[in-house]
Design a protein around this nucleic acid. Structure first.
Length: 924
DNA sequence: ATGTTCACG
DNA sequence: GACGTACGTGAACATC
């Protein structure tokens, strides 16, 4: 744990260039993966280096202060004046990406400060800290071998190559650059750096640059007197590229006056607490290093307050009601470098609710609640508004903590809190989400809500919301809950979240799911929170018109139905419909429902209507309009947020077994499109004036993935050639030439193609096509013969699910099916069909997640203002200024079509159809 | 709280 | 040969 210790002339400050080290370790060391496949080579190199540094320096060179400093991902201030800076750098290798997060975890496990700052590179932070420390008289060691840091070297500041254990002082710098440290930037400005896109002066390398600087003293003098140079080529180049040299000097000159968040004094070194470090090293499977650390530190039992499984004591939570108390908690959180955060609001919707309080936990059992928006009126609080810190002041103090790149914020379903805090202009980062850490490991096995996780992982029963707010009609909003109950409830949430994190996070690595979590889960809450906050505009007048149209159609159908039945009844009651149709009228009943009653669903009513009966026809019409009115036109109008005038859905990240999202309150993933009447609802989704909606959807993505995953050459070739896939299937199966294909045959093939994806059964296909079971069976057999690979794929998935309990997507996401070993054959077969479907549906879900994660950045880089609003499984919906539409479509298509790369190279192309229009309906 | 139906991919 | 079905969701409404 870092301690606070003043910096003075006896201090020795170590500044470790974490980012520089990551790349060197990655390239210098052989690739290493943990047993679960997570790449950890760079992490191991990094941990070895840190440990060696700490051990080697036990003598007189021992650091009194130490911090590890990282680049902030994204652009730096240098791009503000020179756009091309580091622009040609390729994206880091796929197997390095997950290690960035792990290396920050490693730093925290060593209990060392982990420093980064938006807009700055690690080198600038190091320069700033080095200057401050030197000014206080301390000695400084910069642990790096990066030549760009050599300009910092002087009598007090030396560098240490952490891999070669070699000291770099002024003499070594002179050896490398031919000039002393104080002239290094001049030499770099002339020589340039092709790797970082620093232009320099063409034709001049380090040797020549050093010679010129030696001769003329410094860069400005050289450029001013360039005309005196004897060699004509060199003279011309220098005169021509003088400005390039000046820009280059600005690029290579490190910024040493950044306003830093974490002062030097907080970097005081202390022996690391053994268990948390060892826990991390063991989870990474670094056996040698684990043993070394065990020997050096001993490994006693965990400290009582640090045990995630210690009993939860609700009365020990603190209710924070003064700025002093709040500042103490913020300091504790900063020191701990990890803090669990939870927000309480007065309603369930993140977009429509008001912030009521924030809770924090810094260690198991160490949690507080900060009430901010509680109302008076409760007798327990004496009737008045309870004593609370001013909301703006509290958020002002919390903001730097919540945005501090060196403090990890942990939440349970953090998307909600991100959205609430974003509305108060706070961008929480970095973060981890316990719900997602659980989901990525155990999707399909159980739910991932906090109460359930606390029960199973901690054996703890959380206070229910009802216990503090009541239930039913008398339920209070959280703002009306008294502070004592609110503190017990809210602080417990943060406490439990932190404990869950300590248990769940290490298991992520143990089961080699860290890469999936890092690439497909961790980035999502931020993306979705922004989409939900953006919302989508709907045309209120249009919805009102539709509601009254539908009401009229319903009334007509109701009248017709009552007339046809000869009696009045409730058209919304399947029970009454059954009694009339199959009782009074004596029609033959078709299938039964699960509960044993006669089914009256659309398939049954359709059949009866086709036989010429009027009542089922009227019922179908009534149901259609009743559905459109109550579920869509009425509900959407009621869902409009009065502040924004838009509809804000909530996306759920941990609801499905396959990795798909779900949408609720309202569900915007099931807006009608299949029928003409239904489409009118989609026409009510509109763009702001001067804007358009762009809808982009993957064409046939699941069939394409089936072709790739099952290795079906005929399907692959058809997709590569851009053929109509259902017509091709029909032609193969039924022997009809493509140019003679009729609609009915193609429709049959289409049903079979979909059936395959769903884990086909003869009964299901027969039902769907309205044919006999024998005929359906013959179709399936014929399909398997024509497309070898499919049957093998199905058998393989069933076997894999049976053996492991889960199947995997192409990217490695696991979908569990506990029913696969059930003794009930129906349950088992259900699980088998799920196991066949999940890798296909799940891979498609992974691909669109990857596209979404890359999309915002791609839109930003293209200089567009467009916003991503909705995801509907294979479709993304955007809103953009009219004049951006064409460019947006280009960017969106590029990102979506390439979303599987580089992790997976598909053997079929992904095709995206995109269109811009004023309404969602027209954008299809 | 559960079942039925139906909207979407 | 049993089992009773197409895969994944969420919302409204009736009924218990």
């Amino acid at each position: 744990m870092a301690v606070t210790r003043p910096v003075d002339t006896d201090s020795h400050v170590y500044l470790v260039d974490g980012s520089g080290y990551i790349f060197r370790a990655y390239h210098a060391l052989p690739p290493l993966t943990r047993s679960d496949g997570t790449p950890v080579g760079a992490v191991q190199g990094f941990c070895n280096m840190l440990w060696k540094l700490l051990e080697d320096l036990k003598g007189e060179d021992q650091p009194t202060h130490l911090a590890v400093i990282f680049d902030y991902s994204g652009k730096s201030f240098r791009n503000d004046f020179y756009e091309a800076y580091k622009a040609h750098r390729p994206d880091p290798p796929e197997d390095l990406v997950p290690q960035f997060g792990l290396i920050r975890d490693a730093t925290r496990a060593f209990q060392l400060p982990c420093i980064e700052m938006e807009g700055y590179e690690a080198d600038d932070l190091i320069a700033t800290y080095a200057k401050q420390a030197a000014a206080l008289g301390a000695r400084v060691t910069v642990a790096s071998s990066d030549k760009d840091l050599m300009q910092l070297v002087n009598g007090q500041v030396t560098m240490l190559d952490p891999m070669k254990a070699k000291r770099i002082g002024p003499d070594e710098v002179r050896e490398k650059f031919g000039v002393g440290p104080e002239r290094v930037i001049d030499v770099q400005a002339l020589a340039g750096d092709s790797v970082d896109n620093v232009p320099g002066v063409p034709g001049i390398g380090i040797k020549t640059a050093a010679q010129l600087i030696e001769e003329y003293g410094d860069l400005d003098t050289l450029l001013a007197r360039a005309g005196e140079i004897k060699q004509p080529k060199r003279r011309e180049k220098l005169i021509e590229h003088a400005e390039g040299a000046r820009v280059s000097r600005r690029l290579v000159t490190l910024k040493d006056d950044i306003e830093i968040d974490s002062p030097l004094e907080e970097f005081g070194t202390a022996d690391p607490e053994a268990e948390s470090l060892l826990g991390f090293l063991r989870s990474m499977e670094f056996r040698t290093l684990t043993r070394r650390v065990e020997e050096a530190l001993g490994s006693g039992p965990a400290d009582e307050t640090g045990d995630a499984t210690a009993p939860v004591e609700r009365d020990r939570y603190e209710c924070v009601q003064t700025m002093d108390a709040l500042n103490r908690w913020i300091a504790r959180a900063k020191a701990a470098r990890v803090v669990a955060v939870d927000t309480e609001t007065d309603a369930l919707s993140a977009c429509a609710s008001r912030l009521v309080g924030v809770s924090l936990a810094v260690a198991p059992g160490q949690a507080c609640y900060i009430p901010l928006g509680h109302l008076g009126g409760d007798l327990a609080d004496g009737g008045g508004r309870p004593e609370q810190i001013d909301m703006a002041a509290a958020l002002g103090a919390l903001k730097p903590l919540l945005q501090d790149p060196a403090v990890l914020k942990v939440g349970q379903n953090l998307k909600y809190d991100l959205a609430v805090l974003k509305r108060h202009d706070i961008d929480v980062a970095p973060y981890d989400d316990t719900m997602l850490i659980s989901y990525v490991q155990e999707a399909g096995l159980h739910g991932h809500g906090m109460d359930e996780l606390a029960q199973t992982l901690l054996g703890h029963t959380c206070i229910s919301f009802k216990e503090v707010a009541g239930s039913g009609k008398s339920q209070k909003s959280f703002a009306e809950v008294d502070l004592k109950s609110a503190t017990a409830y809210a602080a417990e949430d943060a406490d439990v979240t932190l404990r869950l994190y300590e248990i769940l996070k290490p298991s992520l690595a143990q089961r080699s799911m860290a890469t999936i979590y890092e690439t497909l889960e961790r980035p999502m809450p931020g993306v979705l929170a922004r989409m939900e906050l953006a919302g989508v505009k709907v045309d209120v007048a249009q919805l009102s018109r539709l509601s009254s149209d539908f009401a009229q159609k319903m009334a007509e159908a109701e009248e017709g139905a009552h007339a046809a039945a000869g009696t009045k009844f409730n058209l919304g009651s399947p029970k009454q419909i059954g009694e009339i149709l199959f009782g009074q009228m004596g029609l033959p009943g078709g299938k039964k429902t699960k509960g044993g009653a006669w089914s009256t669903d659309a398939a049954v009513l359709d059949q009866l209507a086709a036989e010429g009966h009027d009542l089922p026809r009227q019922l179908l019409t009534w149901r259609q309009f009743s559905k459109l009115k109550s579920t869509y036109s009425d509900a959407l109008k009621a869902a409009i947020n009065p502040d924004t005038g838009r509809v804000h859905t909530s996306f759920s990240l941990a609801a499905t077994t396959t990795g798909r999202l779900s949408s609720s309150e309202p569900n915007l993933q099931n807006i009608p499109i299949r029928t003409e009447e239904g489409r009118t609802i989609r026409e009510a989704f509109i763009a702001e004036p001067g804007h358009v909606l762009v809808a982009a959807d993957y064409s046939q993505i699941e069939l394409r993935l089936l072709a790739h995953i099952a290795g079906v050459d005929a399907l692959k070739d058809a997709f590569k050639a851009g053929h109509d896939i259902h017509a091709m299937t029909a032609s193969e199966m039924f022997g009809v030439p493509l140019d003679e294909m009729d609609g009915a045959t193609r429709r049959k093939a289409k049903a079979i193609n979909f059936g395959i994806i769903y884990g086909i059964s003869a009964f299901g296909l027969a039902n769907n096509l309205g044919i006999g079971r024998d005929e359906a069976k013959a179709y399936i057999d014929s399909y398997f013969r024509k497309f070898p690979g499919i049957a093998d794929y199905m058998d393989a998935m069933k076997a894999e699910a049976k053996e492991r309990g889960y199947v995997q997507t192409l990217f490695g996401r696991r979908c569990h099916f506990p029913g696969i070993r059930d003794k009930n054959p129906a349950m088992r077969q259900f699980a088998e069909r799920q196991a066949i479907n999940a890798p296909i549906q799940g891979t498609a879900a992974d691909i669109i997640r990857r596209a979404m994660i890359r999309m915002e950045d791609a839109i930003g880089r293209a200089g567009l203002k467009a916003r991503m609003l909705l995801q509907v499984h294979d479709e993304l919906v955007f809103e953009a200024p009219e004049d951006e539409a064409d460019r947006l479509i280009e960017v969106v298509r590029e990102v979506m079509e390439g979303a599987a790369l580089p992790a997976v190279a598909l053997s079929v192309p992904l095709d995206v159809e995109a269109k811009a229009a004023k309404t969602w309906g027209q954008a299809h």
